[in-house]
Computed example of a mutant assay.
Amino acid sequence: MNEKIKNHVHNILAPYQDVKNVQDLEEELSQNLQEKFTDYKKDGHNEEQAYYMTINSIGDITELIQSINVETKELKQTVPMDFSKTELTKSDFRSVSVYKGKFNASNLNESDFSYADLTDSMFKSSNLTKAIFHQVNLTGVQFKWANFKQASFKGCIYDNTYFKQCNLTDIVFDEETFNGTIFEGTSLKKASFRNATLLNVQFRGSDLKKSDFEGAKMDKLTYNFLKSAKIDLSKVTII
């Protein structure tokens, strides 16, 4: 479990590895968290409970960075991360900021991106089976030839997000808000967009067979794309 904690700390500090003193901070934080984990175990919590209590105790990572006088705005512009061609099964990317990151040809099966900021990142030929995307900033993210089998999406930001030739079959997007999102040549068979809001969304040559838009709200552009695909739009609202 100590190794799992160290890996989590390394992931959340990954965008800052070029910053002076960040490695010392990583070592110190890992040690402190391992001590907390031990204390939680002594209090009677099982390993899984103790682990999540330990991770959740970290708080706002920007405060840690500011403690060593780092301007996070500068880091956002200068430190892109490359995780391409990497085995990352069940990786913990929760609350991590990875700006313009690359996850090309990586195995991210069952990885958790909850509360992460992935602005302008690229996922090309990535395996995202059972991956978790809850409350994730996907602004400008490009997914190309990615497999999302049994992946989970909830409360994400999809501003100008691009899905090209991806497998989104059976994916649930209920109550999500899409703005300028493009689905190109993508399988959306049996996908659910119930009660979702769709603005300037394009479905270029995508397979929408048996997809569900009941209760969705959309603008005329999106409506026309779906109408041309002969989707049942009898229960949608044009806004």
Rank of each mutant, 00 (worst) to 15 (best):
E3V: 06
K6Q: 09
N7K: 15
H8T: 08
H8M: 05
V9L: 02
H10F: 13
N11L: 05
N11W: 04
Y16W: 15
Q17T: 12
D18K: 14
D18M: 14
V19T: 08
K20P: 08
V22H: 07
D24P: 00
E28Y: 07
Q31P: 00
Q31G: 09
N32A: 05
Q34G: 10
Q34H: 04
E35L: 05
F37Y: 11
G44Q: 10
H45W: 09
H45S: 04
E47W: 00
E47H: 00
E47F: 01
E48Q: 11
Q49W: 01
Q49A: 05
I55Y: 12
N56R: 11
I58W: 06
G59V: 08
T62S: 14
T62C: 08
E71V: 02
E74T: 13
K76R: 15
K76Q: 14
M81R: 06
D82F: 05
F83L: 11
T89E: 13
T89L: 11
D92H: 13
V96H: 00
V98I: 14
Y99R: 04
Y99N: 04
G101Q: 04
G101C: 04
G101E: 01
K102V: 12
K102E: 06
F103W: 01
A105N: 13
N107F: 05
N107E: 04
N109W: 13
E110G: 05
D112V: 13
Y115R: 02
D120Y: 11
D120M: 07
S121F: 05
S121E: 03
M122V: 15
M122T: 15
K124N: 12
S125T: 08
N127P: 03
N127S: 10
L128Q: 03
A131Y: 01
F133T: 03
F133P: 00
Q135W: 07
Q135C: 04
V136K: 02
G140N: 01
G140V: 01
V141S: 11
F143N: 04
W145P: 00
W145D: 12
W145G: 05
A146S: 15
F148N: 05
S152W: 09
S152V: 10
T161Q: 07
Q165V: 11
C166G: 05
N167A: 10
L168E: 07
T169H: 11
V172I: 15
V172D: 15
D174A: 15
D174G: 07
E175D: 08
E176P: 08
E176I: 09
T177W: 00
T177Y: 05
N179H: 05
I182V: 06
F183A: 03
E184F: 12
G185H: 07
G185R: 06
K189T: 13
A191L: 13
A191H: 11
R194Q: 14
R194K: 15
A196H: 09
T197Q: 14
G205P: 03
L208W: 04
L208R: 10
D212H: 06
F213W: 04
E214F: 09
K217Q: 14
M218K: 02
K220T: 10
L221P: 02
T222S: 00
Y223H: 10
F225C: 12
S228N: 14
K230S: 13
D232I: 06
L233D: 03
K235M: 10
V236P: 04
I239R: 15
